[in-house]
Design a protein around this nucleic acid. Sequence first.
RNA 1: GCGGAGUUGGUGAAGUGGUUAACACGGUAGAUUGUGGCUCUAUUAUGCGUGGGUUCGACUCCCACACUUCGCCCCA
Length: 418
Amino acid sequence: MITKPKGTYDLIGLDSKLYQYIYNTVNEYMINYHYEFIRTPVFEATELFHRTVGDNTDIVTKETYDFVDRGNRNITLRPEGTAGVVRSVIENKLYGNRNDALKYYYIETMYRYERPQAGRYRELTQFGVEVFNSNSIMIDAEVISLGYNILKDLGIDNFTVQINSLGDKESRENYTMALKEYLKPHIEELCSDCQERFKKNPLRILDCKVDKDNSILKNVPKLNSYLNKESLDRYNKLKTLLTHLDIDYEENSSLVRGLDYYDDIVWEYVTDNDNLALGGGGRYNHLVKNLGGPEMPAIGFGMGIDRVINELKKILEGKGEIPHNIDVYIMGISEEEKIAGLKIAQDLRLNNVITEINNSDLSFKSQFKVADMLQAKFLLILNNNDLAKGLINVKDNATKEEIKVDENEIVDYIIGNL
RNA sequence: GCGGAGUUGGUGAAGUGGUUAACACGGUAGAUUGUGGCUCUAUUAUGCGUGGGUUCGACUCCCACACUUCGCCCCA
């Protein structure tokens, strides 16, 4: 038997239902918030991701899906959404005749060559937004609240928005130096991974799972105190705006995100139960220029749909709710009954009634079982005698009451009683 | 890249180096001559992740690999 590749999954059953639900909700929100849908290629030149992410992390050396195509091009399957959108904005000069914010959203699969574990797959799906050409803190507030409002609307309420400011490049460099200065005498007391991080990415030490209760890390200099006036003002303004928009947030001074292209505001949507990030984002005011575009501020976030699906499943299990399936199941045995049923099914379907019909040679007993499995609300039990009189037997599958309805009124009857 | 635990039917699973792989749910058919969900009866894995090896004999022991799952690194 041929099995699916490691770390992938088939979107089936309840998962696929929830995916559609999320997909539809996201699209609705994006339209109302006036974000334009953008789709970029699944694969891009490897160099794009290397330049976006930087060359010094494990991400580039062991966590991307790289291959050489038949034309000897170095290609990488996109591991995240930002790089492709930024590339497209630059390449298509989408900023050319605009002086307002450019707002894009995507819903796409991503590929990461990782060892699978809880909430981590090799093929994952994210939705996200990227906004260009505005450095207004109002945009930061809009983007953060957009992700927040979507999650809330989906029915997820056990999460928290964690925010932090990394400051601008200068502030961050000053802070990094101060942090290293502070940690240097204690470096031997930290875990071996932190000793490695000290050299490669000192800010990540703040995120360490092993040393998180270590008094050395608890007394570490605060990032916020190294912010310059402008960054601090922005951060304070953001907090005011989020409160203004009724967004519950939490400040997390050790939230740094992994990549060094972020400036100023960063945030994550974190579940309360298991502290898993459903999504996160930040400002990246220098990335566009670094990738060959003009000086242009930008901000964005990505949300892991796979993780959101898992959260929704937990919530549904807790409530014991089974998602709605179909409205009407049409039953019949003889050829005439089935053919009559097919027309009725079409009439119902054209009127937005979710309808299924028996097409096989199943006994009534079996058809009832199918109807129950599909959680049909109404059963249309066709028989030749009544059909000849223009009547249809309608059974309410909740009350078990059965009545005969004129075939010309069946659609209205169903719609009126759903 | 590193480590732990797993892999038996549509599902949940038990199992032993030795002819036919428990049990339950589900499915199908019938008792019920075209209106079910209860009950009863029959039936439902030529197969125990894949490939090798040991053995008279392997689902059971050994090795490798694949996949699942939970962590580490990393986290876009």
